[in-house]
């Protein structure tokens, strides 16, 4: 673990804070579904655990982790899109 990683974490958290505070309450549920999908990025760890033939336990745990993370990726992006597709403006604007 390099100390530079701490910089990465702190800066990413800062960027996250700046962006998320600008997400309107209207979209808070899609936001949570989206971060859920993005959390599926733990795939980058679980794929390595499942596929590097290190030992049986690592492979078994890795495959379970890949399954869970992939379920979040597929389910998360699909449901976020499903929700966002429902948000529509009023068709005719009467002033």
């Amino acid at each position: 673990m390099a100390f530079a990683d701490v910089y990465v974490f702190v800066l990413a958290a800062f960027v996250g804070y700046q962006i998320i505070t600008r997400v309107p309450a209207l979209l808070h549920t899609p936001l949570m579904a989206a971060t859920n999908a993005i959390s599926g990025i733990s795939l980058v760890g679980s794929l390595v655990a499942a596929g590097s033939d290190r030992n049986t336990l690592s492979t078994v745990l890795g495959v379970i982790a890949v399954t869970c993370a992939m379920a979040n990726v597929v389910g998360g992006f699909l449901i976020t899109d499903r929700m966002l597709s429902m948000f529509r403006r009023a068709e005719k604007k009467q002033n």
Binding site: A50, V63, A65, M70, A71, V74, G75, I79
Partner: peptide, 18 residues
């Protein structure tokens, strides 16, 4: 095994999404 996990995860994920 990776493929098994990816396919299984997609099969679980699809109903969770749709």
């Amino acid at each position: 095994w990776i493929l098994v996990g990816l396919v299984l995860g997609s099969l679980i994920g699809y109903p969770l999404g749709m």
